[in-house]
Design a protein around this nucleic acid. Structure first.
Lengths: 170, 170
DNA sequence: TTTCATGCAAAATGTTTGCACACGA
DNA sequence: TCGTGTGCAAACATTTTGCATGAAA
């Protein structure tokens, strides 16, 4: 505790528009339309701050709204749009696409526990500085980055040490 | 040039065994067998240091050896083994699995040009230091990491500025 | 009233698997 | 020989697409 002084925790970013308003703005600028399905998807996606995939989102929508509100292709198409609109970021984790909030939330990176599959977020300005220095040296124009540190989280390490109480979290 | 002093270039690591010998050792320790197909795959994979995917490797094998030397499932199964054996590392890039050498080659990260799809390698000890500090603060046991910086490489930036000479590299 | 978006079913993509036969130790 | 590896075909999981219908602007 004494030697670790840098703060890797996340704050939040104040934004002028709600996610739905932000999407509306984006859609209008492209001659696209705000639909009932897009509203439902954005509302669900931004109702909590967790990482999710297309299938999980579809399931949530079906459970909360009934089976016939939003179809699978529309979920995929809308997720692509939300990424284009800057509301979400997409990352590839073990073959499937995982999404998380990018709007109203600071840029950050992840610790990925390969035992319980949890993602822990952290933020580091020093990392950005290194990234930009490397890019500069290579004449590379940075658009963004994705850092995923894989390993085992505290809970799973402890669970491994006392194999009495087996956690079956996925 | 004057302000950039840190060295991000890669060296190489001297190893006692050839990749095939290293695989042989791994296979024996597990009661598995060295086969003609595994030999062919390892030889092809380590004949040059480039990033590749399963499909590309299969194509290379078919072109150099004829169509009936190694099947697609065997390529996939063997790639999985080479990762387990520590000869290769696997990463997910835009939905598909991409492999690269891990044996006889230092750990490193990548700049990914989204225009020409090229991967530029770099190495940074400072990055490792930050990674480990974050992990320590979270009680996280690090197994490894994957950092991919996305953007546009020098050549594609230049090509964009003078749209005369169109590069059609993929 | 004209686009654009949706849903359905089917296709495409990338990867994995069951099973009979082949082969290495 | 004995058990592991292979190839084939089929299954699989995820994501994308063509097309007719439905709904925003």
């Amino acid at each position: 505790m004494a030697t670790e002084t840098t703060d890797f925790s996340l704050g939040s970013v104040t934004v002028a528009l709600t996610p739905i308003e932000r999407l509306e703005e984006y859609l209008q600028s492209r001659g696209k339309r705000m639909t009932q399905q897009r509203r439902l998807i954005v509302a669900e996606v931004f109702s909590h701050h967790e990482h999710f995939d297309a299938d999980g989102l579809l399931l949530q929508l079906q459970q909360k709204l009934g089976r016939d509100q939003v179809s699978r292709p529309t979920v995929y198409r809308t997720l692509t749009e939300l990424v284009e609109a800057g509301l979400l970021v997409k990352m590839d984790l073990g073959g499937r696409a995982v999404y998380e909030h990018d709007y109203g939330y600071p840029n950050h990176d992840h610790l990925h526990c390969t035992t319980c599959n949890r993602l822990i977020e952290f933020k580091s300005d020093e990392l950005i500085a290194i990234r930009d220095a490397v890019a500069r040296q290579n004449g590379f124009r940075v658009a963004g980055h994705r850092l995923i540190v894989t390993g085992t989280c505290r809970e799973c390490m402890q669970a491994r040490q006392r194999p009495k109480r087996m956690l079956d979290r996925i």
